[in-house]
Design a protein around this nucleic acid. Structure first.
Lengths: 196, 196
DNA sequence: TCATACTTTGGAATGAGATTACAACATAGC
DNA sequence: GCTATGTTGTAATCTCATTCCAAAGTATGA
């Protein structure tokens, strides 16, 4: 993949919407070319193929997401407060770029086969949660739970809830109120369903 | 789609494994034909195409899953106990047929475009959870939470945790101990992270 | 200003694979 | 045996993705 100019990066954003609407293999290079107003020969000049375009879009989004999450994880506050900040940052990234995050989740299987993207997902979604759970347990703010399972659960809860709101929003941007959803998620995660 | 004999149904199961390994569009009809030992012309006699084969496999699995879940939801016990039974049934279905459930989650985007499958997923995974949450709140066994979000969260927690174990198990059947994972999931969902 | 290197783009060629068409053969039930 | 239905091989089509190539454009430094 060659260096992508800012102009090109800008035009390519529209490609996420097409991928989200039609799925990866329902999307032809021709459709991407028309939507982005970049001729298909030019697309092939920059990218080795359709999959690399997808990789670029997801990588770009995940990089921005990671930046927000890093920021949240490094902040002040208890593990609990930082976990809330991380979840908010993740949901905020989803709300702000619903098309790309929808593609990411629609193509989970393919992503497993794209090591660069898989690693970026881990860095933006898994790792921060695992770290904060471990911190919270170590400092006695959280109960002792199975970190492996709890990490998967929290990851799943966040992305599926975000996806639900993305799909319900029919393309609005931002797709939902990330703070409100994050509050709802953290409420259940911290306190649980059961009455005390 | 024509009626599928039991013999054919049996052979087709192997197709899930190929779909899981290679993804939907990485899988050629030829590969399915070799794996299932059903000639490709015969596959086209029964199905309109590759996507209908996928629909059949997922529908078959979801039907079995729904049966188990229905059973759990109708049983004795409080909303809490029945919720645990539902989660166990869902995870058990995943553990017993890891390939099919992996395909389901790998192709989430495509499934959105297959109304029959989307509806079956709702029936097997969403609806039972939503109902039990509502019941539990109505009978004062659960705190009052936003049911829409809580349903998505629990659904996400279950499928992503199940998927994690499926992938970690590298094809073993059953892929994991569904009761143990369900206990872990229910512990967090009921009690939350926070120390009391 | 020119030469060189890189960028952009159109259009034709190639090739893989999905799907269809069709014909031959098998088999079950009547 | 007769007919409808199931089974399968082969050839023909069609839709893309991808590759090739050549003609312009453009920036840049000598």
């Amino acid at each position: 993949m060659r260096d992508i100019s800012d102009d090109m990066r800008e035009r390519l954003r529209a490609a996420s919407v097409i991928f989200a609407e039609r799925g990866f293999d329902g999307t032809t290079i021709e459709a991407l070319s028309e939507t982005t107003e970049v001729p298909s020969s030019t697309l092939y000049y920059y990218f080795t193929g359709k999959e690399e375009i997808l990789t670029f879009l997801l990588g770009d989004w995940l990089e921005r997401t990671s930046a927000g999450v890093e920021n949240a994880i490094c902040g002040e506050g208890s593990a609990k407060e930082r976990l809330a900040a991380v979840v908010t940052a993740q949901l905020d990234a989803m709300a702000k770029d619903p098309a790309t995050c929808q593609v990411l989740l629609a193509e989970l299987g393919r992503i497993d086969r794209l090591p660069h993207v898989a690693e970026a997902v881990r860095a933006a979604f898994h790792a921060p949660v695992a770290k904060l759970l471990a911190d919270g347990i170590a400092y006695d703010h959280f109960r002792v739970v199975d970190i492996e399972n709890a990490t998967s659960m929290l990851y799943g809860a966040v992305i599926i809830t975000g996806l639900h709101h993305v799909i319900s929003s029919h393309g609005a941007v931002p797709a939902f109120d990330s703070t409100a959803v994050a509050d709802s998620v953290m409420d259940l995660v911290l306190t649980g369903l059961e009455r005390v």
